[in-house]
Design a protein around this nucleic acid. Structure first.
Lengths: 342, 342
DNA sequence: CTGAAAGCGCTTACAG
DNA sequence: CTGAAAGCGCTTACAG
């Protein structure tokens, strides 16, 4: 129960060896003899010694931390992804830092600073919107390989990307509606500046075309993935002279508030209109009608991103080549979709 | 655009001063003359110098990080709290670490290790369930003052606590039901081992008594704050011979799945049964019936916790005395409550 | 297998 | 106001 902080010197003294040997016994046990290893370990226990990270980090030129850059920490969508990331990295003895890009002013803060400062050994970008000059600042540095995208991405950044199969998701959603006999479909999209928006919308159009479905410009409602924009889409939908019989929404949140507002106006889901969401949030099966949706496995996505970064930090050259990992998605049929009316 | 890392020595050379002066110009500008400060600053710009944190941390014996300990990082409930914490600390130039207590084995990991390791300068516990011996390990150390609870807590830990006014929430919920003329009420509680469960349930009983409401043991449904347990409560509710006309649920998630399952069985909310939730999650107004609930301001709670810890880290002795900060809650009347039947 | 010694890159008394 | 120097607590060639 020593009070003042115990340092490696104290352990060395207690074990009757040099500090070098203590250090080796702790971080590279196989190079010391068994007897000294035991002596060191018991001295460590006696003294309650813990390695000081600042000292180790300074010496080894690493930090033992990774940083996640998140567009909005308050958005519950990210919690499962972060959880997956944290799981993998805590097991690998890394600390996980979270930063909200909204509080960061990335325009005048190159990502290279994160490494120069010694804040993290690697970065996971959950935000496809990091300014490219900021990203470019690491090009040509040893840390170039230690930044990856998860979930969102930007093509021009030239960074590895772990993402859900957004295209397959859009195709599955629309094909499901086609199989139910719908001929006219609409779409609630994400915000225009988001990559996911474009991929999911393109997939929607692609599948609609493949199945010979009609899809008019006025049936595309621009949202922002959040609840309120589903309500706005409902308002626009209700004002339509001619309505589609089915909607593919690019997020569950928009789907839910869309449905609630349709129901309020006496339009029944799924009898009058079928709705497919995207995400499969925890609440989806508990909403009424239970939401048919495209499940993305966010925890798995987080874990996969973490494993990818980890192997790059450990410098496994084989895997470095892989620039894209796609996590499969799944159609979950529930009660918000039904055969097309008459 | 120098490639190899620039250190303070390089800046000193470029500015024609000593490293001591560079250091001062950067971290304590008022002690150097204006001319040298300018010279140093422009040398910093020329060279692209950034202070190395490991070196600074080692020298100053601090880390510039705080750690949040979370029972389940994947639970969206915490995201707003974390967001509030991150806002305050990023502004104060601290990094925020997240750790899931589920991955931690706190039984054999005293919290004091966090400080000994030099992982963080302070800790925010979002988990009321940290083993007391682990907490006790910091008693009597300089870091004793740098651990606080947010949201949950444990009375016996003797740590400062920032929390919502859970009691007032329970009282407001039940008083609202009483005002609507309900005479028989039930409660869906959290898990037995959680502090919030006890406070909210006690408040429920207290208010029921004050208003002369009947509340039977069989009308108390044990849940766990999560969606599935609301469905289980609904099943138990539907099996009752005699039912209460109103329910106070200790979380919105349980309230929502409770209502969905009641509706499935032909029991209408709010016509047959009124339901009040707790939390006011984003979805509450978009569910149907829109959920009457007790709003907790989770972001504010997070911010307040961060500010409290920050002032302790900065050693403002005045505020140290404050052991309890309670964030007010608010009844939000929506559509899931109505006057008692007949 | 082990130790003496250098050094990671800063900050801060101390002296002037 | 400024500089020379010590030292924060480790790890790791280097030598034996």
């Amino acid at each position: 129960m020593a009070r003042q902080s115990i340092k490696i010197q104290d352990v060395a003294r207690a074990a009757g060896v040099s500090t070098a040997t203590v250090s080796r016994a702790l971080s590279n046990p196989k190079v010391v003899s068994e007897s000294t290893r035991k002596a060191v370990l018991s001295a460590v226990n006696e003294t309650g010694y813990r390695v000081n990270r600042a000292a180790r980090n300074l010496r080894t030129q690493r930090t033992g931390s990774i940083l996640t850059l998140i567009p909005n920490v308050g958005n519950p969508f990210f919690s499962q992804i972060i959880s997956g990331i944290e799981q993998v990295f805590s097991e690998a003895e890394y600390s996980v830092l979270v930063s909200d890009t909204a509080n960061m002013a990335l325009e005048d803060m190159p990502l290279s600073h994160i490494f120069q400062d010694g804040r993290a050994d690697g970065v996971i970008l959950l935000d496809g919107f990091i300014p490219l000059p900021s990203i470019a600042s690491v090009k040509g540095t040893p840390h170039e390989k230690h930044i990856i995208y998860a979930c969102e991405w930007a093509d021009s950044a030239g960074l590895p990307s772990i993402r859900s199969d957004n295209r397959a998701g859009g195709v599955k959603a629309v094909s499901h509606l086609a199989a139910l006999g719908h001929k006219k479909i609409g779409h609630i999209s994400g915000p225009e500046d988001n990559v996911l928006t474009h991929v999911r919308r393109a997939a929607c159009f692609e599948a609609a075309k493949a199945h010979g479905l009609e899809i008019r410009d006025e049936w595309i409602f621009q949202g922002n993935f959040e609840l309120a924009s589903g309500a706005a889409a409902a308002e626009a939908f209700l004002a339509l002279k001619e309505r589609p019989t089915a909607i593919f929404s690019a997020s569950d949140l928009m789907a839910i508030s869309f449905i609630s507002n349709l129901m309020d106006a006496g339009v029944n889901v799924p009898r009058d209109v079928s709705v497919v969401g995207f995400d499969d949030i925890d609440l989806a099966p508990h909403y009424r009608p239970a939401l048919t949706t495209i499940r993305q496995d966010r925890k798995r996505l987080g874990r996969l991103a973490a494993e990818t970064l980890l192997s790059r930090l450990r410098d496994t050259p084989e895997e470095d080549a892989e620039m894209l990992r796609v996590v499969p998605v799944e159609l979950i049929e529930r009660a918000s979709t039904a055969p097309a009316p008459e």
